[in-house]
Design a protein around this nucleic acid. Structure first.
Length: 574
RNA sequence: CGGGGUAUGGCGCAGUUUGGCAGCGCAUCUGCUUUGGGAGCAGAGGGUCGCAGGUUCAAAUCCUGUUGCCCCGACCA
């Protein structure tokens, strides 16, 4: 039997990591010899890293196949025409890597494959009888990121699984979507990740669903709110919030008071000695057309700019408002409120603000505030837009079950998305339905970042000594270590154990390097094999074998004849 | 694209202020000793100091230009 020996494995481990590596996962991937960088955002996968990548890909393949997917492979180099037809040649902008061939024809390195697959299907599939269809590939993708960083987390070339579903109607599309949602749940569970499917905004596409599969990790780039009592989770920008009602109070008359230099909520609250929940905060924005947009939230809340954008018709971007705009609306910075503004301001009031009684708000003049403001009485309902515009905070009630929400950061490793007819329409991809009519495909797309999944797994599972792999994606499940490989008795014994494990289907490596025990142990911990089997003079003599579990650090002693059986049992728990 | 930094052996860094033999630790190779948590001793190899110009008797060091990389920001179906 061919033995996989560490002496023949290219696994260059380092004591130190390159200065540029910031994230734990990036450092460990470098130190453990999983990857090396070729240029900014471009990486080579070394044998250990590629083994893990292949295991993740295999899990993906199995789940895609059992959900009805079929694997294909499409070109990386894509003709410009299909992108021009869909309109994305211009839209995608500098993020798309472009090139010309010797004849001057334009091409792109695919950042995604909607155009490619839609064109493929358009030219082949004619009948509803051929539907539904789910095709996927695991392929390199290219995005010329403005700032590649964090190793494999945000790189310019990356391995991605992308599946595209084609259905004859929306119902079918939703079935495909659910199949993928379920498959993704299985995939990330098998990878041993703590994750949440997070509700995502469908934006302009509309109508369908979208979830981002987010691995929970403090270093993640996206911030999410989630509920521990139910399965609700959403990105901070998308989390919907219910109105918070306040206890009913007797209404006092509106009154203007002097508040010298109190231009922040903190100063007003202290000066007037009121709880922050009884204050109304104003944030002034303007859009591309220099329209003034004033957003009002409770003093202890923050404005969610995305929600504001969605409320204001025709606005694409928000900027900090220029002071002259605020003055033109008959107000002044630091003392704004909806009371007494002219028509130059678009006034958005958070729904929770409307529930307040006898609160404090600006008086639209320097050094003055109103007290006893009750928005329902004092705000001009015709002039204001009431909406949910606040940013979720830890402790806010879950929109599904009402329990307090938690906040965490996460790494987006996959997303599922219904596309509807967006691309099939643009590229004129149609089929003949049962009734003989021509119809446009209902599509969905579903992506998983393979490298990012690997990085996220490390980000979530490591300690001071190195990586702690889940057995399903570890480069090897078990490493057999003779502490002194120069001792032929130890080596031979280790080889026997190796053979037995191998014959039982265990993915195993023999560390036959003639290094000192300490060096080998450190490397084992760094690389993170889930189980280490140690052969030493001591164990040889007693006829037992020592086993160390990487995650728990636990040492066990197994009788020689039970080694394989016990390791198989142990693996099931890791 | 704006701001800030940086570039010296495979990795981590010093040397640049004030020009004068290119260094240190780790790693690598050889030998001896050691052998259950990154060993000790002795020796060795490896760098056009990012690149291109310029100043100078002399440039890693000063000047000009350029490129890569890193950080912050803007951007991100």
């Amino acid at each position: 039997m061919n033995i996989l020996r560490a002496t023949q494995l290219y696994a260059p481990t380092l004591r130190e990591s390159p200065a540029e590596a910031e994230l734990v996962s990036h450092k460990l991937m470098y130190r453990a010899g999983l990857i090396r960088k070729a240029a900014g955002g471009l990486y080579s996968y070394l044998p250990l890293g590629w083994r893990t990548m292949k295991k993740i890909m295999q899990i993906i393949r199995e789940e895609m196949d059992s959900a009805g997917g079929q694997e294909i492979l499409m070109p990386i180099v894509q003709p410009a025409e299909i992108w021009q037809t869909s309109g994305r040649w211009a839209v995608y902008g500098p993020e798309m890597m472009r090139l010309k061939d010797r004849h001057g024809r334009e091409f792109a390195l695919g950042p995604t494959h909607e155009e490619m697959i839609t064109t493929l299907i358009r030219d082949e599939v004619r009948s509803y009888k051929q539907l539904p269809l789910m095709l996927y590939q695991i392929q390199n993708k290219y995005r010329d990121e403005i700032r590649p960083r964090f190793g494999l987390m945000r790189s310019r070339e990356f391995v991605m699984k992308d599946l595209y579903s084609f259905d004859k109607d929306v119902d079918g599309m939703n079935v495909s979507y659910q199949k993928m949602y379920d498959a993704y749940t299985k995939i990330f569970t098998r990878c041993g990740l703590k994750f949440r499917p997070v509700e995502a905004d469908n934006g302009a596409i509309g109508g369908g669903h979208s979830h981002e599969f987010t691995v929970l990790a403090p270093s993640g780039e996206s911030s999410i709110a989630y509920c521990e009592s139910c399965d609700y989770a959403a990105s901070d920008e998308k989390a919907e919030l219910k109105v918070i009602t306040a206890d009913v109070e007797e209404l006092k008359p509106l009154e203007k008071v002097s508040t010298p230099d109190c231009h922040t909520i903190e100063l007003v609250k202290n000066f007037l000695n009121v709880p922050i929940e009884k204050t109304i905060k104003a944030v002034a924005f303007m859009d591309d057309d220099e329209r003034l947009i004033l957003a009002f939230v409770r003093g202890d809340h923050e404005v969610n700019e995305i929600k504001v954008l969605n409320v204001v018709e025709g606005a694409n971007h928000l900027y900090m408002a220029e002071e002259k705009l605020i003055n033109a609306a008959n107000s002044c910075a630091g003392f704004m409120s909806p009371i007494g503004l002219n028509d130059k301001a678009i006034i958005i009031v958070d729904a929770t603000v409307m529930e307040m009684y006898n609160a404090v708000a600006g008086a639209n003049e320097v050094d003055a505030h109103f007290i006893n403001v009750t928005p329902r009485r004092d705000f001009d309902a015709k002039k204001i837009i009431v909406a949910d515009i606040r940013m979720v905070q830890a402790g806010d009630p879950c929109p599904k079950c009402g329990k307090p929400l938690h906040m965490t950061r996460g790494i987006e490793v996959g997303q599922v998305f219904t596309l509807g007819k967006k691309y099939s329409q643009a590229l004129n991809a149609t089929f003949l339905d049962e009734d003989g009519s021509t119809k446009t495909f209902e599509m969905g797309c579903y992506g998983i970042g393979v490298g990012r999944t690997m990085a996220a797994a490390i980000e979530q599972n490591n300690d001071a000594d190195g990586i702690i792999w889940n057995k399903n994606i570890a480069p090897f499940e078990v490493v057999v270590v003779p502490v002194n490989a120069k001792d032929s008795a130890q080596l031979e014994f280790a080889e026997k154990i190796y053979d037995e494990l191998k014959n039982s289907g265990v993915d195993v490596l023999l560390d036959d390097r003639k290094e000192r025990a300490g060096v080998k142990f450190k490397d084992c911990d760094l690389i993170g094999y889930p189980i280490r089997v140690t052969i030493s003079p001591k164990t040889l003599q007693s006829g037992n074998v020592e086993v160390k579990v990487r995650r728990s650090g636990e040492f066990m002693t197994f009788a020689r004849e039970d080694v394989v059986k016990n390791i198989l049992e142990l693996l099931k728990t890791l």
